[in-house]
Design a protein around this nucleic acid. Sequence first.
DNA 1: TTGACTTATATGTCTAGACATATAATCGTA
DNA 2: TACGATTATATGTCTAGACATATAAGTCAA
Lengths: 242, 242
Amino acid sequence: MSLTADAADQPTLYKRIRADIEKRILTGEWPPGHRIPFEHELVARYGCSRMTVNKALSELAQADLIERRRRAGSFVRRPQHQSAVLKIADIRAEITALGRAYGYELIGRKLRAATAADRDRLGVKKAGKVVAITCRHSADKVPFAVEDRLIDLSSVPNAATADFSREPPGSWLLHHVPWTEAEHTISAIVADDRTAEALDIAVGAPCLVIDRYTWRSARTITAVRLLYPGDSHRLVARFKGG
Amino acid sequence: MSLTADAADQPTLYKRIRADIEKRILTGEWPPGHRIPFEHELVARYGCSRMTVNKALSELAQADLIERRRRAGSFVRRPQHQSAVLKIADIRAEITALGRAYGYELIGRKLRAATAADRDRLGVKKAGKVVAITCRHSADKVPFAVEDRLIDLSSVPNAATADFSREPPGSWLLHHVPWTEAEHTISAIVADDRTAEALDIAVGAPCLVIDRYTWRSARTITAVRLLYPGDSHRLVARFKGG
DNA sequence: TTGACTTATATGTCTAGACATATAATCGTA
DNA sequence: TACGATTATATGTCTAGACATATAAGTCAA
C-alpha cells in the first residue's frame, strides 16, 4: 500500500528516518542529484547512533532511491531511470484473484527426443528429451489463454512423470523448480484458425502473445508461449522499494 | 578477536553469508518452507557477531527470499510466488540500448480544458486544463511506436510551457516529475487506417498496446497509450534480489 | 477438551565505540 | 600549468553488548 504515513505512527526510529527522507525525495523537495545530509548530521538531528541512520540510508540505497559515494556523501538518484516494474501473475492466481472460477484443460502432452526446432526454442545445443504440452486456461468457463510449452527434461527430469491432466504445468514447475532468471517477449498477432477456435474468437481478431523462457543458473528449464484474446491483459506496476 | 578462518576473502563477511544462503536456496538445497539456521547458529558457524548475520538475513528478507518470524526462525519463501518482475524501459533508452538511432517527431499538441473524456481517462473529477500530445518514436527512421498522451496540468503546471517538439514528453516527465505509482494495461488490437499509416504497417495488422497511468501520491499525472507494431516488443525479467 | 495465563526464545532495534577503504581536496613539485 | 603524492573525511563493515517485542510452547484451571 502507500507508504509514508503522514504523521509518525511511531514506528521504529530508523524507519522514521527512512520515511522522512523518502518523502522529501518523492515530493521533489530533494531532486535527483541533491546531496542528502551526511550521516553525522542525521545522527545529530535525530539524536541517535550512526548505525541507526546507516541502516536507514542503506535501505534507501538498496531500493535505488539514493546513491552513496565514499567521502562524497549520499545523493538522490534519478527516479528509477525510465523504468517501471511490472508484476506478471501466474494465470491461476490471476483468475482467482479476479474472483472468477479457474478452469484448466490439458489438450495435448508429448514426450519426445528434442527436434531441431525444440532445441532452438529452448536455446540448448545437446540432444535430449523434452515434454511438449498444450493446454487451455479459462475463467468462468470462458477461454482465457492457451498455453504451448516445452520442458527440458535434462533440467527437470521429474516432469516426465508429472501428471499435468489436473495441475497446470506452470504451477507444477513453480512448486518444483526454483528459477533464477526469466525473459519475456510480448507481442501481438492476429488469430489463425486454430487459435481462433481455441480461444473462441474470430479469425483475424487480435491476440496478445507472451513468450517466456526460464532458466536456473544458465540451464534452460522451460519455454512457454501464452496466447490471450487481445482485448486486455492487465498488469500492475508499483514503484520499487516498499 | 576477528579471526574468521579466511579473513582475507574478497567480499565482506556479511555478503559472503548472504551469498552462501542464497546459493542454497536457489539450488533447491533448502526448499521453500525450510527453516534456515538461527542467527546464533550462524554466529557460531561464521565466528562473527550477531549484527553481521542479522544484516545478511535482513537483506535476504528484503529481497523476499526468506521470511523471518519472531520466536520461530527464518524460512525460505516460495520463489516469488508465481510472479515475475518485468522491466519496461523508456522508449528512447530502449532504442539507443539496441544500438539504433532514435528519432522523435511531434505530431500534435493541444492545450485545452479537460473534456469529459479527458477526465474519465485521467480518472479525475474536477475540471481543469490538460495537454494532449501525439507523437511518434522511430528507430533507424523506421516507426517504432506512436504515443498518445494526456497530462494533467493541475498536477504538472510546468508542462504547459514545456517544449515537446524536441524532447519526448515521457522523458521530460521522468526528469521533472517523480512518480510513485503506475499501472499498465497491455493488450492487442488490429491497426485501423490512422494507426496503420502512422506505423507504416497494413490495415488489419496486429498492434501491441500499452496503456500507462502514472500517479504521484494519489494525484494523477499522466495517461499514455503506446502503440507498437505487433511483431515484438521485448521485455526482460530478472529474478529479484541482485 | 478448551481457554487463559506464563515462560522461553528468536528476531527487531539500538548503542558507542573501532578500524578499513575509497576518494575529494589539498599541497608540493616538475 | 599540469601532475603526482598526501591528507582529510564520509561511507563500509564490524563488535559485544543491551533491551524490546512477538509468539511458540508449555502450564494450569474450568
